[in-house]
Design a protein around this nucleic acid. Structure first.
Lengths: 242, 242
DNA sequence: TCAATAGTGTCTATAAGACATTATACT
DNA sequence: AGTATAATGTCTTATAGACACTATTGA
């Protein structure tokens, strides 16, 4: 009985009969380059806000995408060619004023990838460019993308204090010195070398895979590591201090 | 130039010309009652899934709501009459299969309120009912609401380990014993009394406001507390152990 | 041998876990 | 006095912070 009622209802249901918000997905893609946190921005090719820099993002393709996470992955892949990065949902922002086209909702994702110059990206997307995070405060970004970037930046900083999130933003294998530098840039704070190494050693989240050149080419060679399976889910019960 | 281009574009923009997902907001409202975590469910009055229990939720009212958080607050207020509860965004779920009407996205919020019987709610909403969280696993809920409830439940558990979130789920003023019981139910784990009290005392997040009866009416009276301003933002750098 | 980077030893500080003990009420 | 609940004392354990020290490489 309920089934037939539902079926009757659905047969005449039209998603366009109601006023609903515009829905989109945006991705804040971060990397490290020359000891700075960088974010990938694209220049808008279409109205509104043509020509302004913005986060890669856009609408769900109802035919091709089966989930919003796949939409986010598609945006990332089309701009960078990176296939399996660290990708996590940050938050959803929706209000009447953020988009001139009307009531708009966007789900913000954050991705971390090891650095590669934009020229190396598939199809060498001409409109995409890395920006040092400290250089964009003066930029006139599209919509509320300054806010979105700050929100993702905060998440990145907070999670770095009690996870091993930064392993995704550098290329494996890496030395502990390199990993610590990544932590320090993401947290915007110096860490004690001993504390850092003790934490990594005790947690057993890294696998040693040989030796490599030291930073700067001079000095004692460094042990190299790759993340152990399951390391990204690890939560430390104690965070680094603020 | 860009301005006129944008204006021309916007003047002919119609949100209904593209296929976009259905967008909704759902709220998982939790409380404590008789030493159990309860969640508020409503019985669906309309197709699809008529008659099934579900989370309070629904579509954004583009005329009345200015943000999605306000949509969530409106849903909460209309079901409970509670005006300023703890409300936080949990996550957004969007895929092609969760709603028979088509591609659907929902933003899940979580609210915590001190217990009040549903009969006391404004307009005494007839279709709303508290369910002990442990009693709903067998219920046939609408859509993917079992998943949503579990997602919010996990967030609740995790945040309780390093915040004072549970202060919102009991009525102030409260004793430390009552607060610890709330922590224990939300974490599903016994806590050491001394550790718990030491943490609360050191953090200075509670203000003593007098004395009250002990639990069960027998024994030494307990000091009563209310949350201090700003307490909800406090993050402990060290979590309770798993 | 010097300089540079990698890596360790060790003491202190902080806060949680465990559990015994004392305090204050009512009957 | 007996019992129940609130609150504290104190020892142990875990892990971060500080900082000096040793190890290994190339020039």
């Amino acid at each position: 009985m309920k089934l037939t009622e539902d079926q009757a209802y659905l047969s005449q249901y039209d998603t366009k009969q109601f006023d609903i918000p515009i829905y989109s997905v945006d991705v804040a893609i971060y990397t490290l380059h020359e000891n700075q946190l960088n974010i990938l921005l694209v220049q808008r090719a279409q109205a509104p806000e043509v020509g302004k820099w913005s986060l890669p993002g856009g609408f769900v393709d109802l035919k091709e995408d089966s989930t919003i996470e796949i939409t986010a992955k598609r945006k990332l892949l089309s701009k960078t060619g990176v296939n399996a990065p660290h990708l996590e949902q940050v938050s959803t922002i929706g209000n009447a004023s953020r988009d001139p086209r009307g009531w708009s909702v966007t789900t913000l994702y954050m991705a971390l990838i090891p650095y590669a110059p934009t020229e190396s990206f598939v199809e060498a997307v001409a409109d995409a460019q890395w920006w040092p995070i400290n250089d964009i405060s003066g930029l006139d970004l599209a919509f509320d993308h300054h806010d979105l970037i700050n929100t993702a930046r905060e998440r990145l900083k907070n999670k770095t204090a009690y996870t091993v999130l930064p392993i995704h933003i550098i290329r494996a294998p890496f030395s502990l010195t390199q990993l610590q530098q990544a932590f320090e840039i993401l947290m915007d704070k110096k860490l004690e070398k001993k504390s850092f190494r003790r934490r990594m050693a005790n947690a057993e989240l890294l696998k040693e895979v040989g030796e490599g050149k030291p930073e700067g080419g001079k000095g004692r060679p460094a042990a190299l590591y790759i993340p152990a399976p399951g390391s990204e889910e690890h939560l430390f019960t104690r965070a680094f201090n603020d």
